[in-house]
Design a protein around this nucleic acid. Structure first.
Lengths: 242, 242
DNA sequence: TGACTAATAGTCATGACGACTATAAAGAAC
DNA sequence: GTTCTTTATAGTCGTCATGACTATTAGTCA
């Protein structure tokens, strides 16, 4: 950290990239923008942009999220979760110049269709499993975001960030099942969630019909706890040992 | 990510900061350098430096680690663990200019006294609990490193990164106790570690006298596993509920 | 030889969890 | 209405992980 001189070093551009995840119709969806220019023109990319001189990366991420989704209120309103993932800095990751990108993962409850208010040519929710190769190293960033979210579901109460303010335990379970790609036993999931103090708290007297059929489910709100002790471990992948 | 122009935006300096942790005499120690210039002249700081134009942040971190510690071989040799923590980008974090810093945590087994080969005026191992206020936002970075390492001990085999190539289970337990700041039951710790396939593997026939007294302990090497399933949870802090 | 120390072996009760069965409350089919 | 289907919720049972202990072994030190 010696010899500071603003122009002694090649300037780096610093950007943020956002992996914005949500659940639509029981499937994990990602917010993507279509690139209008080379390189990767016509390809889908994660939304993002330059960090401004007076901003932190976190501030820039929030601003970009509002711009690209048109969900200005979302940051204040529902339980938006914005989390720094890691920073991608390979010298060749942008063919034009040296760009260091701080990646964030953002989780949204419901997903209003974005109206590309910002620079984005077109912003759309695309199913996570159905994203072709993305621009730059965004495939890797997206995969890292998925990994991180999947891991944090185990030992935090993060799952409620995917849910609307009031939700059923079935909906909460769907978050786990969708992100993890596994099925969970319903009574056991219920027992575990309710046994964790502060994970969810019941909404008195309220119930929701889960699409018509079946017994109406009780409604819950997100509790005050953030950590999960002991964790809710995802079932270990089978077929490992002999 | 539109409108790329190398000089259209204020240039950011990109640096890496390293929280290098080790265990000396049963206490957590951090590698710190004494600053020779303003700002924060005379204060201790985390080692670090500029990312060069042709480097990734990870490469820069490895280079700085070798330079500052004089432990060139260490990256190749023993089980060095280098992990990206997060990126610190508050506009005011360096009073001179806009510096975005990618922080890394590095874990070393034994700790040869560093011979400040790099720019560092003086590099020293200082006890973690005895670091006065550090320069810049390095207190926060260091605390984040500690948090991260403590958390990763729970669900990874990271603890062996603090140990020499061959170690006793008592030494491994000391890693947990020191980083977590708690005591652990020795037989239970032993049972847990040995029950986790791939965590450690015995060195046949070898034993070490743990400082003279007591029964000699068997020696183990780090196994091939990286994850811990189920995790080794740290004892929950007491005095929470009524 | 006999304290002392530390590693290792083993026991026991509790708690968490996976697998499963049973019941309740709704709509749909007839 | 009655019955079937669907989904939520309640409860059971055995297993495994774990916390709290006790016992034994193998060394040093006095």
């Amino acid at each position: 950290m010696q010899g500071y001189d603003k122009y002694a070093h090649e300037p780096f551009a610093v950007t943020v990239d956002l992996a914005v995840l949500t659940l639509r119709e029981g499937a994990l969806h990602v917010l993507l923008v279509e690139r209008g220019q080379e390189p990767y023109a016509g390809k889908w990319a994660l939304p993002g942009g330059f960090v401004r001189p007076d901003e932190s990366a976190e501030t820039a991420a929030r601003r970009e999220l509002a711009e690209e989704t048109g969900l200005d209120d979302v940051s204040a309103a529902s339980g938006l979760h914005l989390e720094q993932l890691r920073t991608y800095s390979d010298p060749g990751r942008d063919p034009r110049m040296r760009v260091v990108s701080v990646a964030f993962a953002a989780l949204l409850p419901d997903a209003p269709e974005p109206h590309g208010g910002g620079d984005a040519a077109e912003a759309r929710w695309l199913p996570y499993d159905d994203t072709g190769p993305l621009a730059f190293d965004h495939d890797r960033i997206l995969a890292d975001a998925h990994d991180r979210v999947g891991a944090k579901l185990e030992y935090t109460c993060l799952a409620t960030s995917f849910c609307p303010p009031e939700f059923t335990l079935g909906e909460l379970q769907q978050v786990y099942e969708t992100v993890w790609g596994t099925g969970l036993d319903r009574p056991n999931f219920r027992r575990k969630v309710l046994a964790t103090p502060g994970f969810v708290e019941p909404v008195p007297g309220a119930a929701r019909l889960t699409g018509g059929r079946g017994k109406p489910a009780a409604l819950y709100r997100a509790g005050t706890a953030t950590a999960l002790h002991p964790p809710l471990l995802r079932p270990p992948r089978e077929g490992r040992s002999a």
